[in-house]
Amino acid sequence: MSQTEDYILQPRGLTKEFKGFTAVSAVDRNIRRHSIHALIGPNGAGKTTVFNLLTKFLVPTSGKISFNGRDITAAKSAEIARMGVIRSFQISAVFPHLTARDNVVVALQRKLGLSFQFWRSERVLHRLHDRADELLGMVGLEHFAGATVADLPYGRKRALEIATTLALEPELMLLDEPTQGMGREDVELVTQLIRKVSANRTILMVEHNLGVVSTLCDRITVLQRGAVLTEGSYAEVSADPRVKEAYMGKAA
C-alpha cells in the first residue's frame, strides 16, 4: 500500500481503559513521515497515555499500532526502541549520576553489542567519545561533557535528553512536553533544536506551549477526554470553536 509509505505510524482504534475509566478511546491517526506532528489538549486529555501506549509502557486494552506498515502492537518497549522509535518523558529522562558524555555513550554503545560484556574494560567505549561529543555539540553542551548530569540546569538536561535520543538515530522521535517548565530562552533554544533535528525524521510531540506548536508543527491533533477532537494545521485547529471550548470551557 502506498499509504504506509506516506505514513510512518498508524494507531488504529487505540483504546486504554483503567477499571471502567476510559483514558484513551478509539484513537485512529496517521502520522505522516518527515513531519512534525503535535498532540495537544487540556490536562487529563490522555496525551501522555497515548505516548505510553505507542511505546508500550502501557498495554492497550484494544486497538492496533502499526509502524512502517508493520504491526507492533505486541512488541515490548525495548523492541520498539530498537526498531527506531525513541521517546522522551515528561520529566527529564537523563541518567543523573553519569556524566553528560556517558549519558550519550550509553545510547551509542547499544549498537556495539558489548553491553553484556562485564569482563571488558569500559575503555572499549572510548572510541564512541568523538561521536558523543559531536552530539553534545549539536545541542550546545560541548563544554559540559565531563559534568555530572545531576548538577546541570534543567534546560541543559532537556537538551542532553535530545542528544541521547539522537544518538540512536531514531526514525521517529516521541517528545513528551520538551519545553515544559522552561524559561523563555530555553524554550527558544529547544524549539530551534527540534527544528534542526527534524530533518529526515518524524517527530510526534506533546506540547502545551502553543507558541512552540504554531512555529514548529505541520499538523496538530487535539485530544479531549481521551478521544480525538479534531486534527489539522495550526490555523485550522486554532480557528475551531470546539478547541477553544475544550481549553476554556463553554462561553457564556
Binding site: 518497549s77 537523563v94 549520576h97 556517558d102 549519558n103 562485564f118 572499549v124 541521547t164
Partner: peptide, 29 residues
Amino acid sequence: VRTVHSPFGQVLAAIRDNENRARSLGYDV
C-alpha cells in the same frame, strides 16, 4: 571492579539511575 567499569556496568548504572529511560533506549532492563 571490572564489572562496574565495563560496558555492562555503564548500562547497569543507567538502569539504576532511570530504568524507564534505559528501556526507551532499547535495553531489555
